[in-house]
């Protein structure tokens, strides 16, 4: 009877949020695209249209090449490290050992801490100073007689970005473990029992039954970690500040826009980041929501 009225109220309730997201997400993306094709350099807005100039300049910009290279190295190590540690710990914790809850909570707690706090602490742990000023993990390795492990961490030429993956894995591997544990718990016991009855060893059960069942989880984790990796920003800032050697697109966007007032280029970097994230996320959303609708 009051269905019509209910519909009207429903729309009125969600409308403010829909408009807010519409403006702050989609409206602002369009606005950013507009800035990215403008000649806006300096404090005052300048919307003079210059086509794809900002994008073309970025493609030829050595700093942007470093950014892309750093992002690729970081992504491979960070995502790979999280998946291996996450799956490994999830399988270990699925063996019904005593203290399982304790270890699970312990592995997950870095998720509650900000990238800034983690970065500041890891900055001192990965202190590259040598000789009498040696500290952090290098000092620990020295004291333990593990001198071969002493290194220059994030100041290593060319490969410095690889070491940023360590604190990033520290923060996100527990989350990956939680995703996998959820998947392992969903494998019906009857399936394992049936395989055992058929004479499969535990190793074979994992190899041929459980790991294939976890594939969708790996895909989810890959996409979520991958998009976090494309956006990595505050962790690098907290560990190493703004160094060109450790630059990534998110940092370049920030410094070129807010330190250098090169708004046109900043917007172009932002849009390129958005496109790279969208390539991962849109298919993910499409398939996840479709699967949900089928249930």
């Amino acid at each position: 009877m009051h269905l019509k009225k209910d519909t009207a109220i429903s729309i009125a309730l969600v409308l403010p949020s829909i408009i807010a997201v519409g403006v702050f997400v989609y409206g602002f993306i369009v606005w950013s695209i507009r800035v990215s094709v403008s000649n806006w350099k300096g404090l005052l807005p300048n919307y003079e249209f210059i086509g794809l100039q900002n994008y073309i300049q970025l493609m030829q910009d050595p700093r942007f090449h470093i950014d892309v290279r750093n992002t690729v190295i970081f992504t491979v190590l960070f995502v790979g490290g999280c998946l291996i540690i996450g799956l490994g710990t999830a399988i270990l914790l699925d063996q019904g050992l005593r203290g399982e809850n304790f270890f699970r909570s312990l592995y997950l707690f870095p998720m509650a801490i900000s990238f800034i706090v983690a970065g500041v602490v890891w900055r001192w742990l990965m202190n590259p100073a040598a000789g009498s000023r040696m500290s952090g993990l290098n000092l620990l390795f020295d004291n333990l007689g593990l001198d071969f492990l002493i290194n220059r961490w994030y100041t290593t030429p060319y490969w410095g970005i690889a070491f940023i993956a360590i604190p990033a894995i520290w923060q996100m591997s527990g989350y990956t473990m939680a995703l996998y544990l959820g998947g392992l718990r969903a494998v019906p016991d009857t399936l394992r029992e049936a395989a055992r009855v058929d004479g499969a060893t535990e190793l074979e059960i994992y190899r041929f039954i459980i790991l294939p069942l976890l594939r969708p989880i790996t895909l989810s984790a890959l996409i979520i970690l991958g998009h976090i990796s494309l956006k990595v920003f505050d962790l690098i800032i907290a560990v190493a500040g703004k160094q060109v050697a450790l630059d990534v697109p998110a940092i370049y966007m920030w410094t070129t826009t807010f330190d250098g007032y090169f708004f046109g280029r900043g917007a172009a970097i932002g849009i390129l980041l958005l496109i790279s994230v969208a390539v991962l996320i849109i298919p993910y959303l499409y398939f996840t929501l479709r699967a949900e609708a089928e249930v």
Partner: peptide, 13 residues
Amino acid sequence: FGMFIPYQSILIP
């Protein structure tokens, strides 16, 4: 989708 966007893409506006 708004949950996943890199905020660099909306920061200037």
